[in-house]
Amino acid sequence: MITNPNEYLLSVEGIDTYIGQFHILEDVSVKVGKGSITVLLGRNGAGKTTTLKTIMGLTPPRNGRVIFDGQEIQGKRAFNIANLGIGYVPENRAIFRALTVMENLKLAERKKGDLDRHSEMIFELFPDLERLSKLKGNQLSGGQQQMLAVARALVPDNKLLLIDEPSEGLAPILIQQMMEVIRKLKEKTTILLVEQNFIMASQLAERYVIIDDGKSVHRGLMSDLVLNEELIHQYLGASIQAPTKTSEAE
């Protein structure tokens, strides 16, 4: 648990983000401790994805600060922010369809040789990708695309990964696989996760932030949240249930 504020790798402080005339985020604050997994929870359309995009510089905030690794990054262009060491796995995966798997990975290099240095680690996590390396992005299944999207974020040395809904649209067995991968990644890097699948989120993350209607309304330790069924029900909806003993067993 983090007590010293300097230990935060990322700290989002009171950001307001507009898309066109719509006020999407209002005074959202998120703190991510070094070497931890923090998850953003909330209903569909609450503003979780926009929070990630705002951190990434894709939808710059109008007010507030985003501090990454000791420097203010709000207002910087997305490529500058990425080059500071942030990897982004968007919710729609955004695999380049016209590029092969290998090219998709190669494109993510920031320095020459990034891929060579990390390919062993990447293909160990995702053995399928090595086999598929010559296929084009549009020939991959949804699950394979998701693997590739995560793998792409591992090519350069990233200090922070922003991962948006890694389980979305995946078969249960693939969700398990993806969870394993993210758990392994935690040893090397810091992760800010958006995840609708509460079971997955609760097993991976140490801390949570609930975003509701564009505001960050609640935060704390995951271990506390899983016991607070009322809170879960209020903000995350009836569809999401607290994990039971059976689903926790692997």
Binding site: L58, R77, A78, F79, A82, N83, P90, A94, K106, R152
Partner: peptide, 18 residues
């Protein structure tokens, strides 16, 4: 490679640090 990727999704190319 960047051009072929950028035709589809320039934002994602930018988010990769390009």
């Amino acid at each position: 490679m960047i051009i072929r990727a950028g035709v589809q999704d320039p934002q994602m190319v930018e988010a990769l640090g390009i």
